[in-house]
Lab assay of single mutants.
Amino acid sequence: KELVLALYDYQEKSPREVTMKKGDILTLLNSTNKDWWKVEVADRQGFVPAAYVKKL
């Protein structure tokens, strides 16, 4: 499975999103959308801005 690194803190703004902290390592589930990537963090799945994460 592919992992991404959170480059910035992100606070979810809708139930479809997830909160992450800078430095978090997240499991990447889907990166087909260039703006929003689906990730899993702490047993929750949701979207984060693609610009806020980097593939490892």
Score class of each variant (00 low, 15 high):
Lys1Tyr: 14
Lys1Ser: 09
Lys1His: 12
Lys1Val: 15
Glu2Ala: 12
Glu2Ser: 12
Glu2Gly: 10
Leu3Val: 08
Leu3Gly: 04
Leu3Trp: 14
Leu3Arg: 10
Val4Gln: 00
Val4Arg: 01
Val4Leu: 11
Val4Met: 04
Leu5Cys: 09
Leu5Gly: 03
Leu5Phe: 09
Leu5Ala: 06
Ala6Gly: 03
Ala6Met: 02
Ala6Asp: 00
Ala6Thr: 04
Leu7Glu: 04
Leu7His: 04
Tyr8Lys: 15
Tyr8Thr: 08
Asp9Pro: 06
Asp9Met: 03
Asp9Arg: 03
Asp9Glu: 05
Asp9Cys: 05
Tyr10Thr: 00
Tyr10His: 04
Tyr10Ile: 01
Gln11Gly: 08
Gln11Ala: 12
Glu12Ile: 06
Glu12Cys: 11
Glu12Val: 07
Glu12Gln: 14
Glu12Ser: 14
Glu12His: 09
Lys13Thr: 12
Lys13Ser: 10
Lys13Pro: 05
Lys13Ile: 07
Ser14Glu: 09
Pro15Ser: 12
Pro15Phe: 09
Pro15Asp: 11
Arg16Tyr: 13
Arg16Met: 13
Glu17Thr: 09
Glu17Val: 05
Glu17Tyr: 06
Glu17Phe: 06
Glu17Met: 05
Val18Thr: 07
Val18Tyr: 04
Val18His: 03
Val18Lys: 01
Val18Ile: 14
Val18Gln: 03
Val18Leu: 14
Val18Pro: 01
Thr19His: 05
Thr19Leu: 03
Thr19Arg: 06
Thr19Glu: 04
Thr19Phe: 04
Met20His: 00
Met20Asn: 00
Met20Thr: 03
Met20Arg: 00
Met20Phe: 11
Lys21Trp: 11
Lys21Ile: 09
Lys21Asn: 08
Lys21Val: 10
Lys21Pro: 01
Lys21Ala: 09
Lys22Tyr: 05
Gly23Ile: 01
Gly23Pro: 00
Gly23Tyr: 05
Gly23Leu: 02
Gly23Asp: 06
Asp24Thr: 08
Asp24Asn: 07
Asp24Lys: 03
Ile25Ser: 03
Ile25Trp: 05
Ile25Lys: 05
Ile25Ala: 03
Ile25Cys: 06
Leu26Phe: 07
Leu26Arg: 01
Thr27His: 10
Thr27Phe: 13
Thr27Lys: 12
Leu28Gln: 00
Leu28His: 01
Leu28Cys: 08
Leu29Ser: 04
Leu29His: 06
Leu29Cys: 07
Asn30Leu: 10
Asn30Ser: 13
Asn30Thr: 08
Asn30Arg: 07
Ser31Pro: 06
Ser31Gln: 11
Ser31Phe: 08
Ser31Thr: 10
Thr32Val: 10
Thr32Cys: 12
Thr32Pro: 04
Thr32Arg: 10
Asn33Arg: 11
Asn33Val: 05
Asn33Ala: 10
Asn33Cys: 10
Asn33Lys: 07
Lys34His: 12
Lys34Phe: 08
Lys34Arg: 13
Lys34Glu: 11
Lys34Ile: 11
Lys34Gln: 12
Lys34Cys: 10
Lys34Thr: 11
Lys34Asn: 12
Asp35Trp: 15
Asp35Cys: 13
Asp35Met: 14
Trp36Gly: 01
Trp36Met: 06
Trp36Arg: 03
Trp36Cys: 07
Trp36His: 03
Trp37Asp: 01
Trp37Cys: 04
Trp37His: 03
Trp37Val: 07
Trp37Thr: 03
Trp37Ser: 02
Lys38Met: 15
Lys38Glu: 15
Lys38Ile: 15
Val39Glu: 00
Val39Thr: 01
Val39Tyr: 02
Glu40Arg: 09
Glu40Ala: 11
Val41Lys: 15
Val41Phe: 13
Val41Trp: 07
Ala42Ile: 12
Ala42Val: 11
Asp43Trp: 08
Asp43Phe: 09
Asp43Thr: 10
Asp43Tyr: 09
Arg44Glu: 04
Arg44Gln: 08
Arg44Asp: 03
Gln45Ile: 15
Gln45Trp: 08
Gln45Thr: 15
Gln45Pro: 06
Gln45Cys: 11
Gln45Val: 15
Gly46Phe: 08
Gly46Ala: 03
Gly46Met: 05
Phe47Glu: 04
Phe47Lys: 02
Phe47Thr: 03
Phe47Ile: 07
Phe47Leu: 10
Phe47His: 06
Phe47Gln: 04
Val48Asp: 01
Val48Glu: 00
Pro49Leu: 04
Pro49Asn: 03
Pro49Ile: 03
Pro49Gly: 02
Ala50Asp: 02
Ala50Thr: 06
Ala50Trp: 02
Ala50Ser: 15
Ala50Met: 06
Ala51Ile: 12
Ala51Phe: 09
Ala51Arg: 15
Ala51Tyr: 09
Ala51Gly: 12
Ala51Asn: 13
Tyr52Leu: 13
Tyr52Arg: 06
Tyr52Trp: 07
Val53Thr: 05
Lys54Glu: 14
Lys54Gln: 15
Lys54Asn: 07
Lys55Trp: 08
Leu56Pro: 03
Leu56Cys: 10
Leu56Phe: 11
Leu56Ile: 14
